[in-house]
Nucleic acid binder design. Structure first.
Length: 152
DNA sequence: GCCAACGTTGGC
DNA sequence: GCCAACGTTGGC
């Protein structure tokens, strides 16, 4: 099983939105590295740390899981979507992919970015690396277990 | 293939 | 709102 961290702006799509939807398509990913993680490494049952970004309390809210592996993101072909991608439309095929995720468990407490930063055993997380903006990041099993045991 | 310009991310 | 860091675009 693989472990991931996925960022979402809560104003756009929050943990609560995921809980009410039960299953959500992770659409709108427009970065090749992130897409390639989904295409090449995301497998059914992989665990996901759901991270709220660009908000008052940035941090990990809970754990989700992958319930459908990568498939074409149709918003790339939808000219009415904010994720519309002219190059995909021109090619008649979406060059972007998405996965479906479902909630597993909300953390007792938000794993706040500042707290993660203060946790010695989490210093090597990609999340803490300067300039790291990738919206989908691999997480090691150790990192995942540590986070779950502290805040989960 | 280079690289300047531009756009985006995301914490603060 | 600021701005550092990074990715993408497009002219050459």
């Amino acid at each position: 099983m693989n472990y991931w961290l996925m960022k979402s702006e809560p104003d756009v799509f929050s943990w609560d939105d995921l809980e009410s939807k039960k299953i959500a398509s992770w659409d709108g990913v427009r970065n090749y590295q992130a897409r390639n993680f989904m295409r090449d490494q995301f497998r059914m049952g992989d665990r996901v740390l759901f991270y709220h970004s660009s908000c008052e309390e940035p941090g990990i809210v809970g754990i989700a899981k992958v319930v459908r592996e990568a498939y074409p993101d149709p918003t790339a072909l939808d000219s009415a979507s904010e994720y519309f991608d002219p190059a995909s439309a021109k090619a008649g095929q979406s060059r972007w992919l998405m996965v479906d995720v479902a909630p597993v468990k909300k953390f007792r407490q938000l794993a706040h970015l500042s707290e993660i930063r203060e946790t010695r055993s989490l210093q090597s997380m990609l999340l803490l690396r300067k300039g790291q903006r990738l919206s989908i990041q691999p997480v090691t099993q150790d990192e995942f277990k540590t986070i779950e045991s502290i805040w989960g």
